[in-house]
């Protein structure tokens, strides 16, 4: 693994001991997590997890297998309700909210193993994502047909724009399950973006991708940040990807944060090397 990256992000201190990218300074962080923890019976899966993510930051969450990374994502989306700690999305607490309400507050996510609605068309998958920004309800659907048709057309147009962003507008009518693997991964991101999030959580977006697909993914992640002006937080095992695009990295091991910082800081952190990157150095 080469250590020469052109990518040298700079983090500046946010109020006290946390850091955000310089351009996000003075704006409220999109995600503020304090002392988050969850126990499953006697097992503590995640403990004392704190992180601040800037409004347009690309943040990385890394760690060895079983470190609790996906559990953190499940906690952030209230799929699991935390035993301890607090989560603020754009300053609002997610405590007691249901998963779909957390999505409405601005968190969207993708899954480690793709979970598209595979019997729905590609377009309909994105339209399901658009769901919460469409205002019609059941009765509107029944009562005013014309207005509804108009809203549907608008949704179609918007959904196509999301597909176009990932160069897959021509696949709109195919069933999502019939797409090739890489396209399914892109569709999952498009579907999540369609819920107009403030932060998108990507769970191993590069899993199973070849180097050229991974390069395209990195480009896409940057475009997501720049075009939508949102934050991205990703779990990834591909160190090249993480070190190349993440600004702040958080390393998790056995459910605890063992290091936080810029890619350079993380690479030179002996604790991280011991827990995680040690393996990569041998290669």
């Amino acid at each position: 693994m080469s250590n020469n990256y052109e990518h040298k992000p700079k983090l500046v201190p946010y109020p006290s001991n946390a850091f955000v990218p310089e351009r996000d300074l003075g704006k409220r962080p999109v995600l503020e997590v304090n002392h988050l923890g969850i126990d499953f019976g006697g097992l503590t899966a995640v403990d004392d997890f704190s992180i601040i993510v800037g409004r347009t930051e690309i943040a990385g969450l890394i760690g060895p297998n079983g470190a609790g990374k996906t559990t953190v994502f499940n906690l952030l989306t209230n799929v699991y309700h935390p035993t301890r700690g607090s989560i603020l999305v754009d300053g609002m607490s997610t405590a007691g909210k249901s998963t779909h309400q957390v999505n409405h507050m601005g968190i969207a996510r993708t899954f480690q193993n793709i979970r598209l609605f595979s019997n729905l068309s590609v377009l309909d998958n994105v339209k399901v994502g658009l769901h919460n920004s469409m205002k019609e309800n059941f009765f509107a659907a029944v009562t005013h047909g014309f207005g509804y048709g108009k809203a549907e057309k608008k949704a179609d147009k918007e959904a196509l724009e999301f597909l176009d962003f990932f160069h897959m507008a021509d696949m709109a009518d195919a069933p999502a399950g019939s797409l090739p693997y890489g396209a399914q991964r892109r569709l999952e991101i498009a579907r999540a973006l369609a819920t107009s999030p403030k932060i998108i959580l990507l769970d191993e977006p590069a899993a199973g991708m070849n180097p050229s697909e991974t390069a395209e993914l990195m480009e896409n992640i940057r475009r997501i940040r720049d075009n939508f002006g949102i934050a991205v937080m990703l779990i990834e095992h591909d160190m090249k990807l993480v070190m190349n695009i993440c600004e702040g990295i958080c390393v998790l091991d056995h459910g605890k944060v063992i290091a936080k910082g810029t890619p350079d800081e993380i690479k030179s952190n002996p604790k991280v090397v011991e827990a995680y990157l040690g393996k990569a150095k041998e290669a």
Partner: peptide
């Protein structure tokens, strides 16, 4: 063809993913 119909199909395929896409199951 309706929004709720699509939500119903989404929920029937994957409840959790539908929740995460902002659909109230």
């Amino acid at each position: 063809f309706t929004k709720i119909g699509k939500a119903m199909r989404a929920v029937s395929e994957d409840k959790e993913a539908a929740e995460l896409m902002g659909i109230s199951t």
